[in-house]
Simulated scan of single mutants.
Amino acid sequence: MLDNPLAVAQRESAGASTFGKYNFQFHWALCEIIKKHEQQKEYAILIEHHENVVIADALEADKAKFEFYQVKNQAAKFTADSLIKRKKGTVKALKSSVLGKLLSSCIHNQYEERITTIGLVSSSGFSLALDKGLKLDVIKMGDIAEEDLATMTQSIHKELGIDILPGHLQFIVPEIQLRNQEDYVLSNFARLVDKLFPGALCNAVAIYRAVIDEMGRIGRLEYDYKDWARLIEKKSLTSTSLHQVITQHSRHPCVDDIKNDFDDLANDLCWKSKRKRSFKRELSLLALRRAGFMSALDIDITNSFRASHDKINEDDFSNDNAYVDALEQQAIREGLLRKVKDQNALLMEVIYCLLKVE
């Protein structure tokens, strides 16, 4: 098993136990992963793990890079002074500033070099002096006027010992707003399905509820995970799991051909109706999922089974039963059972590859 690159004691876990207060942050996070899903990128999103929102750009521990976001829901706009203001604590020590708290999650640790974006998201926006008087929804270090940049740099140096603010630090004004966050995410899910499967019918409400419930679950978990695989399984929402939810609540004509072809094949194989119905349902979900989003794992599996199929000549067999059995045995000889969960899944891949016309 690969070690978890984020296996560092977290700054705090109070955010997880008071997750119900942060409805806005995971609606914003959903919008971010919908954008990535539209681009057919792999990702894993973590809620209340080191920061409010952390997004990994890969599912493999050795490849993943990270975006760290603190998401704020407040009435007043952030100014340079309010970003670096430090209140008095219960003892003599000062509390962290908003900006200092964000940066302390990202610097001087084992994953610092793997962070590509450090973002502060504010529902009310920012009142920072910008070069050329621009009005921006994503404010980068090079956009901030010298006076405000110097003020923040000096204060953060005193608080954290940082000489220069990270170049990948951003201040983000979200498109989603408090008053319409549920409807906004619902409409984005509907548009996502239409982009993935043009002409598809989907239940956007069912997709939204399933995903929001899952984000609530992972947000409440307070445990650390030394193993990356367990972190992904227990504490993240991935591109794969989101796509499974989408396909479960969507229908599309692209699946009809493979379903009809399977009916013919199942009749030739003399399958009983119970087995045929169950297999057909799973095959339909597999076909729809791969029609809209081919993960790296999907690509590897389909390429492996296609290469295995090419070694068997259909003309050598007198009936479909013998041909399918030969394809299945060849896949086993190729070691493809290691790529799927069990024998039934292997047969599913054999038949999918047989019926899928490229």
Score class of each variant (00 low, 15 high):
V54W: 04
K226N: 14
I212P: 02
Q74R: 08
Y184A: 06
L355P: 02
E12D: 13
R277N: 15
L265T: 04
T116N: 11
A44S: 12
D263Y: 04
A200C: 06
R86A: 00
D163K: 15
L283Y: 12
V255C: 02
A291S: 10
D227K: 12
T116Y: 13
P166Q: 11
S124T: 06
A7D: 15
V357L: 12
Q110L: 13
L165W: 14
T79N: 05
W228V: 09
V173W: 01
D325P: 00
K226S: 14
A44Y: 05
E314A: 04
N52T: 11
Y208F: 11
T238S: 11
A44T: 04
A266T: 07
D137C: 09
A345D: 13
M215Q: 10
R306T: 10
T116Q: 13
Q25A: 12
L269F: 04
W271V: 01
L201C: 06
Y43D: 01
D261M: 08
A145R: 05
Y69Q: 04
T302I: 09
K135Q: 15
D227Q: 13
S155H: 10
E358P: 14
K132H: 15
A61F: 04
R209G: 09
F262C: 00
L355F: 03
Q181W: 00
E60K: 11
A296N: 06
Y225T: 11
D268M: 07
E60W: 08
E112K: 14
K87M: 03
D163C: 12
D137Y: 02
D263R: 09
L99R: 10
L286F: 06
